[in-house]
Design a protein around this nucleic acid. Structure first.
Length: 680
RNA sequence: GCGCCCGUAGCUCAGCUGGAUAGAGCAUCUGGCUUCGAACCAGAGGGUCGGAGGUUCGAAUCCUUCCGGGCGCACCA
């Protein structure tokens, strides 16, 4: 491990072991197994690796598993000199082969931070957040953004791993019905013109009122207004206003569109600020207005027609539309002329494009497959370390960034959009871009809903029927939900109350910083602890908790470790290098050493966990890992009093154990987007 | 009707490509701060893994079916 690729000791050992077993199987039984399962024994006392291979062979060899395991164990034991890192092999249970590692050698390697690398070639484009810029971000949007941002951190190059080249974009639908609705509210409910809308923005700015909060209420009012009349003619008139407004936005170059633009841009600014509170940043904001004005669809349509994916329907219910075969259907039956009634309409009979059509064009651009089309780019928002760009219709100046050349994409979009997403993928596949379709990941997740109790606490009227449900879907249209900024404010206030009583000696600004770190830690962890396809039934009691399986639990463990180094007048780094020349075996191989070794072993599994998260697009595994490591550390903390230890070798080992756990907890939290406060 | 997802302890959730006595957190009860800070730790109680078949040496995990719940199936975005 001194030369060449840095590699994980765990994985290296595993590979040489499996190769050896394959050789034994071949020479002894003339058997080749394509896959060898490797597990972990239920307790570390039984070893670090468990092989159920004897069970697999039992039937083929017509022998008891335990007998086979015994033979294999004998062969492996004889080969031990050629198996570096492995201390012993033994048979356990009904026929498991349990492997013990050489603890001191492994600990030394881990202390030196030898670990597997993660990364590879290719540009990966992640899209997340994508909130309609017509209202405040709510907890559902938070789940999306936190999932996407965490995944982006797992992929991106950093000091720990080579990583992948990554771009993060946030798609802005600034010309859709939702934005049109708030424009209707401003113009038809509030009587605003372009000029008085500008005045309103200034007024909100001066009174420190969040524009997205203002729109939240207005949007709910408009949505009601559309249906709140007993006069049928009036309702029709209101629907027509809505349609006309939408068309004005799509056409552009008119006062209505300008109102929409300044409002949606102001709300977008607010969204970026809200997300920045949670350490979430973007590289690029592609907007639908540019997809329209730069005519991405025209190029996409030509391509789709050429590839035969898009065709004019000449009969049936979709007559006069350009349609596409829907994902998961066979299309029209062979030998019949019957039209495919299941087909997805891409171009309406009036010549306008549907949402899926625009999305296909957009995704062809993402993969660099839309000939002659690209956005213009200009800087929109500045982060401490980089700029966030936004799309423009005008050509870009010198040195424009390029985003539309992805080798793989991840779309963080909730599971309700499964069908549309599959249609886009089907279009790509139908056009012959099968390799591209395979690298299109719909990073699907379930929604965040409210528990009935939470909804009642917030003062929403809840029907008897809804109160019996386990959760109630949030609705921007009804103004029903928990705003992201409100939740964060409440979390910070709760954390601040704790920090204030625990650390009155710390200056106020610093206390606020720490409280914010704790609040963000609690919130991000809360959104990440559930696996993606679990509906989160949101409740303030759970979300505001700082105890148990939470972000602050992990942060607290890190603070405890830091206190040890401070009082011992040393550092984590020094503690880790201090054990290099010590004889660790007597302590590590003892019974007492087992619990220490367990901490080291778990600490060494960060890369394994990250790889698993990337492969399955599931950040929840890392959240679980961080918690388990913190639990392990807290257990260690109580069993071993580091500062009181009088034996110097033993003390050095204890210090380094705290150090390795702290190192990996900080890293794990970092990937979750959670900072480690100095004290708390 | 079709498609996707879910059903595991009182509650909220894990359980990786099938594997050793099914695990956490919260809640409840019992202990533990003159010791590196108790936002912590130790212990206890609590589960026919929705039901029924099947595959397998072995199933919470794979297959079939049924029951119960959620979300999608527009010339809306």
């Amino acid at each position: 491990m001194q030369s060449g690729e840095p590699s994980s000791m765990y994985r290296t050992i595993q590979q040489s072991l499996l190769a050896r077993i394959q050789a034994i199987l071949l020479s002894k039984y003339e058997i080749t197994l394509t896959q060898l399962a490797v597990e972990q024994p239920p307790s570390i006392a039984l070893g670090e690796l468990a092989l159920p291979v004897a069970f697999e062979l039992a039937k083929r060899l017509r022998k008891a598993p335990r007998a086979i395991a015994t033979e294999l164990a004998a062969e492996l034991t004889a080969a031990l000199p050629q198996l570096p890192g492995i201390a012993s092999v033994e048979v356990a249970g009904a026929g498991y082969l349990n492997i013990r590692l050489q603890r001191s050698a492994a600990v030394r390697a881990i202390a030196q931070d030898q670990h597997a690398d993660i990364g590879g070639p290719g540009f990966r484009l992640i899209e997340h957040t994508s909130i309609n810029p017509n209202k405040a971000a709510h907890i559902g949007h938070l789940r999306n953004a936190i999932l996407g941002d965490t995944f982006q951190r797992l992929l991106r190059p950093d000091s720990f791993k080579r990583g992948y080249e990554v771009g993060v974009q946030n798609y802005i639908d600034n010309t859709g019905v939702q934005v049109a609705d708030v424009v209707v509210g401003l113009v038809h409910l509030e009587g605003k013109t372009l000029d008085t809308t500008r005045e309103l923005l200034n007024e909100l700015l001066e009174t420190n009122t969040r524009i997205d909060f203002y729109c939240w209420d207005l949007y709910a009012r408009v949505s009601q207004w559309y249906t709140a009349s007993s006069d049928a003619a009036e309702l029709t008139r209101r629907k027509q206003i809505r349609l006309d407004t939408l068309h004005a936005l799509e056409a552009g170059d008119n006062d209505t569109a300008t109102i929409a633009d300044i409002i949606s841009t102001a709300v977008l600014h607010r969204h970026l600020e809200t997300m920045q509170r949670l350490s979430i940043e973007y590289d690029f904001l592609p907007r639908e207005s540019e997809i329209l004005s730069l005519h991405f669809w025209d190029a996409a349509r030509a391509l789709m027609l050429e590839k035969g994916v898009l065709y004019l329907e000449t009969s049936g219910k979709n007559q006069g539309c350009y349609v596409m075969r829907r994902a998961g259907t066979d299309g029209q039956q062979k030998g019949t002329d019957a039209p495919d009634e299941e087909a997805k309409v891409i171009v309406r009979s009036n010549g306008t494009v549907t949402y899926v059509g625009k999305d296909i064009a957009y995704h062809l651009w993402k993969f660099g497959l839309l000939p002659g089309k690209d956005f213009g780019y200009e800087k929109f928002f500045e982060y401490p370390t980089h700029s966030c760009w936004i799309s423009t219709a005008a050509p870009t100046g010198p040195q424009p960034p390029t985003f539309g050349h992805a080798d793989a994409i991840y779309n963080v979009i909730d599971s309700r959009q499964n069908d549309p997403q599959n249609n886009v993928i089907a279009a790509l596949r139908g056009m012959g871009y099968t390799d591209v379709a395979d690298r299109y990941t719909h990073f699907s997740y379930e929604m965040v809903a409210l528990t009935p109790r939470c909804a009642l606490d917030l003062g929403y009227p809840i029907s008897e029927e809804d109160q019996k449900r386990s959760y109630i879907e949030v609705s921007g249209r009804k103004g029903f939900g928990v705003k992201a900024d409100d939740l964060l404010d409440r979390l910070i206030a709760a954390a601040k109350a704790e920090v204030d009583t625990r650390h009155p000696e710390i200056p106020e600004p610093e206390r606020l910083t720490i409280s914010t770190q704790i609040a963000v830690g609690a919130l991000r962890y809360f959104m990440l602890r559930f696996t993606r396809n679990t509906v989160i039934a949101f409740d303030f009691k759970d979300a505001l908790s700082f105890e148990g399986e939470t972000g602050p639990y992990v942060q607290y463990a890190i603070v405890r470790a830091a206190n040890i180094f401070r009082k011992a007048n040393t550092t984590a780094e020094a503690s880790l290098s201090a054990i290099a020349t010590l004889d660790l075996a007597p302590i590590l191989d003892s019974e007492e050493g087992t619990s220490l070794w367990e901490t080291w072993l778990l600490s060494s599994k960060l890369t394994l966990t990250i790889e698993q998260c990337i492969a399955t697009a599931e950040p929840a595994y890392l959240a679980k890992y961080a918690f388990q490591l913190a639990q392990q550390f807290n257990n260690f903390y109580h069993r071993h009093h580091v500062l009181n230890e009088t034996d110097p070798t033993r003390k050095a080992i204890l210090l380094s154990t705290a150090a390795v756990a702290q190192r990996e907890m900080i890293r794990a939290l970092g990937y979750l987007g959670i900072e480690a406060p100095p004290v708390m």
